[in-house]
């Protein structure tokens, strides 16, 4: 509706409770986390107030550098694979009749809501030697004997793409739904093949959506914390796993908090980038 500004206290009243809840239970926790990231760790799993940059200084170690490099590389790879598959898929989805589209969306949402625990368990079974896909391949004669693919890098990558795929589809869906059908029809009337029309017209028109999809899928996969433990080996542990590990098992909340703040800054910078892309689209 958006008419006028609220003046009296009564008109502000609906805001008080939600603002208070978000302030107390979201803003203050972040403040505490930020403060703890500068605290000094003391023996026995506790920490005391101080102002030290040691926790951030540990980022400079070779070990942490490796973990960070691996996390970023893995997420980038997963994001590219996801968008590469999700973009044509979403485009085709939006061309389906409404009923079938809705059936797909219900299915995608159900897959999206699957817990990481369940996805990890299911894929470790699918890629196992005793009951996995390789048994199926042996049965049809494509392989000599069943093999185990999990844990391993490929298993982890597959699991991550699986988790991020429905999310990526739902990210791309709004912009592809609105894409003008006539553009493609015009291109085809002018003699372009369907495939050529797709790559030149659709991909071109949705360039910004693809870029923001890539970035948001990247941020999403950066946040995956269980799959590396279920489908990967210790050298495949990502920064999200390290944060949990340092906090819970090493009882080093200050270092965990410093890593979380760092991860947050990276994510915010990337999300900010997608906002800029969105604005460009609105302007152009």
């Amino acid at each position: 509706m958006r008419t006028g500004k609220p003046r009296s206290l009564a008109e502000h009243a609906p805001l008080i409770y939600p603002a208070l809840m978000l302030l107390v239970f979201f803003v203050i926790p972040f403040g505490i986390m930020l403060a703890v990231s500068f605290f000094q760790r003391v023996q026995g799993g506790f920490y005391e107030p101080s102002f030290t940059l040691d926790n951030y200084g540990r980022f400079l170690s070779a070990f942490f550098g490796n973990v960070l490099g691996f996390s970023l590389g893995l997420s980038a790879l997963a994001a590219v694979i996801c968008v590469g598959l999700a973009f044509p898929f979403t485009y085709l989805l939006t061309r389906l009749a409404r009923r079938r589209q809705i059936a797909w969306l219900v299915f995608l949402l159900s897959v999206l809501s699957l817990s990481e625990v369940i996805v990890g368990f299911a894929w470790s079974t699918l890629l196992s030697r005793s009951a996995g896909i390789s048994n199926l391949l042996v049965a049809v004669g494509l392989m000599a004997e069943p093999v185990s693919w999990s844990p391993g890098f490929a298993a982890l990558l597959i699991g991550m793409c699986y988790l991020a795929f429905p999310y990526t589809v739902l990210l791309l869906y709004p912009s592809l739904v609105r894409l003008d059908r006539e553009l493609v029809e015009a291109a085809m009337t002018m003699g372009a093949s369907p495939l050529r029309a797709f790559f030149t017209v659709v991909v071109g028109a949705a360039r910004n959506a693809i870029l923001s999809g890539l970035i948001l899928a990247f941020v999403f996969t950066l946040g995956i914390y269980l799959l590396p433990q279920l489908l990967g080996r210790p050298q495949h542990w990502t920064i999200s796993v390290m944060i949990t590990d340092q906090t819970i098992y090493q009882s080093n909340l200050p270092f965990g908090a410093a890593m979380a703040i760092f991860l947050m800054l990276v994510s915010l910078a990337l999300i900010g980038l997608t906002l800029l892309l969105g604005r460009q689209k609105a302007a152009g």
Binding site: F26, P29, I32, M33, V219, G223, Y225, I243, M264
Partner: peptide, 17 residues
């Protein structure tokens, strides 16, 4: 924000709080 940021960040904030 809680939904867009990687969940481990919010989780740690809640833990500290």
């Amino acid at each position: 924000a809680p939904f867009v940021l990687p969940p481990v960040i919010s989780a740690l904030g809640f833990l500290a709080f």
